[in-house]
């Protein structure tokens, strides 16, 4: 493997990793406020993919779009993906998790519900949209846009990284600098005291789901731009992004970003060195290794309950 090969693979890894990072945020935010591993988040991601396809199919992109048209299509797809993702996450919390919280259900019941909701949602999508992959309408010519020190970057790759980074910066701002963010952090640390300060826990939880859903949905659309969407598309990226959240330190927003990027790069190198059959082995091996050495993840679990 020459030096320029390594560079190419690294660029690919960063593209994949920024996608994982965006999805991982959804897992880590929800874990932060509810200590819940929301396995149905992969279906929020899937919903975002379909949201983008549906919006673009209705809009019918012209065969040979101009630059401005391409930008409009892309924005439309991101918005639709984020909107459907946010909507599904909102509904998921209201229908599946809120009733359990009202009854003070044990943690295990939440986990099983999450898995059940995941099965329900992706089979619902299979029923509604068919079990065959649906190609993403072409919004632009996916040509080589530019090279980064020799590594080619396509339009899609550029798009994924730029939108991904924008979303990560936004969510970091929301969590650390806004009132909603201070509510999210307060609920994550001590929900009882947070409500003594006037924080409406139900509202903060619901908005946390929506925030994660918007990001996951947009990521689903971006993932779909690569090729196609189908009802099972959430599973592997979802579980990888979940691992990324754990790797970075679950509950920790910046940890999720770091974990996502790490897994993307590791996966990319694994494929390059050992071939596509080993794609997920490298990333999960890295996860196991890190957790053996540092059980709280790279940046450490951030869900401190007040001692």
């Amino acid at each position: 493997m020459s030096l320029s090969d390594i560079w190419d693979v690294l660029v690919l890894g960063v593209v994949l990793g920024s996608l994982y990072a965006v999805i991982a945020i959804g897992y880590t935010l929800v874990y932060g406020v509810l200590q819940l591993l929301n396995f149905a988040h992969s279906e929020v991601f899937m919903a975002g993919g379909f949201g983008g396809v549906i919006a673009l199919t209705i809009f019918e992109p012209t065969a040979d779009p101009s630059g401005i048209q391409s930008v409009v299509y892309i924005l439309l797809g991101i918005t639709a993906g984020a909107a459907l993702g946010g909507f599904v996450a909102f509904g998921l919390e209201k229908a599946a998790y809120l009733p359990l919280r009202r009854r003070n259900a044990p943690r295990l019941v939440f986990l099983i519900t999450a898995i059940g909701a995941s099965f329900f949602l992706y089979n619902l999508a299979g029923k509604l949209f068919g079990r065959y992959p649906i190609p993403m309408p072409s919004m632009y010519e996916n040509r080589r846009l530019f090279t980064v020190f020799g590594a080619p970057v396509s339009v899609t790759q550029f798009l994924i990284v730029v939108v991904g980074v924008l979303m990560l910066v936004t969510v970091d701002f929301v969590v650390n600098r806004t009132k909603l963010g201070s509510g999210i952090r307060a609920v994550a640390q001590d929900p009882e005291v947070a409500s003594l300060m006037g924080v409406n826990i139900d509202r903060v939880v619901s908005r946390t789901f929506v925030l994660g859903g918007l990001m996951g949905g947009a990521a689903g659309f971006l993932f779909g731009t690569n090729l196609q969407v189908d009802y099972t598309m959430g599973f592997l990226p979802g579980i990888t992004a979940f691992s990324a959240a754990v790797l970075g330190g679950i509950g920790n927003v910046r940890g999720a970003m770091l974990g996502g990027l790490t897994l993307g790069i590791v996966e990319s190198f694994t494929v390059e060195i050992w071939g596509d059959a080993w794609r997920y082995v490298g990333g999960f091996a890295a996860l196991v290794l890190v957790l053996m050495l540092r059980p709280t993840g790279i940046l450490g679990e951030r869900v401190g309950r007040a001692a």
Binding site: S182, R185, A186, Q189, G198, R302, G304, A306
Partner: peptide, 25 residues
């Protein structure tokens, strides 16, 4: 205003952040 038993400050936040959350309402 309720100052709970055992203080229960938000341990991972700064002093200023804790005070700002006090004004959340």
């Amino acid at each position: 205003g309720h100052v709970p038993e055992g203080r229960r400050v938000f341990a991972r936040m700064t002093v200023l952040e804790n005070l700002k959350i006090g004004a959340y309402r």
